[in-house]
Amino acid sequence: MKVTIDGIEIDVPKGTTILQAARMIGADVAPPAMCYYTNLKTSGGYCRTCIVKVTQGSAANPTPMPKPVASCRTEVMDGMVVENFTNPEIVEARKGIVEFLLINHPLDCPVCDQAGECKLQDLGYENGLAESRYEFERREYEMIDIGEKIKLHMNRCILCYRCVKVAEQITDGRVHGVINRGDAAEISTYIEQAIDNEFSGNVIDVCPVGALTDKTFRFKQRVWFTKPMNAHRNCTSCSGKVRLWFKGDDVLRVTARKDEWDEAEEFICNGCRYDHKSKYDWVIEGPAPIHRQSVISQNKYANLDEKKLQELKNQKALGFMKIDKKP
């Protein structure tokens, strides 16, 4: 199927979404996504940051779609023409959505562990206004611990539902979810339960903001002063393929390996995440590939082989990456 996005044509298999097709073309046309996550079924559609204009539905039925659509949940049709960054209305609409996401966000970036790898921070930087037009008090919640290792800072949550889908799809029993409704909706556990499951730590990795953070890493270091390395170990629960975040010789935290869209390539178990914080626990493969633009490591590492990266990108965009989940 042929689809044209911002004037660039690409051939994609049936079932590909507009967002996936755009990612195959590259970052220059790929819409931002705060709630979509390739490895999580039924994710996406909520945040609305990835909206695009479909100016031609398909070759067979060229009528434009009346309203902007969520590119992450709209499948490509043959001959579809899509406008993203080239459509001023979309750019303007996205600014509006970013503003909505920010009006109740605490903007406590200086003390937030997510700073430097926060999608909302990036989005705000790219699409935000210089000053807020919102003059009212922001929503505030108490911080809560959900288990020993995870801190829930609800003030920062943008209700992307990713953590709920992780709990539903890769753990064996969801104990947290979204309660209340409207702008009072919040992530919460039921009756003070801990999210206690071998794969529960992945909610931290999928959180696009600093709402769910790793308590073992809390206030340890700004991420841009840490050095990410890919490593692996023999693990009976997960693939054991992780990313170690070093400061000197110390492993400050362990996360899943993330691709250039900031999505975990494979989910990891809590054993790998929390219980192996010595570099001797791991076989170090080498420096993690870091996007050139990233604050973490400008020019610290060589870029990955371009061809390999493209291959990886295509696979990922199509959702072919397997979750190596045992069991």
Binding site: Y141, M154, N180, D183, A184, E186, S188, Y190, I191, E192
Partner: peptide, 8 residues
């Protein structure tokens, strides 16, 4: 609206 309950 005000939610009746918050948190756990």
């Amino acid at each position: 609206m005000g939610a009746e309950i918050h948190g756990t």
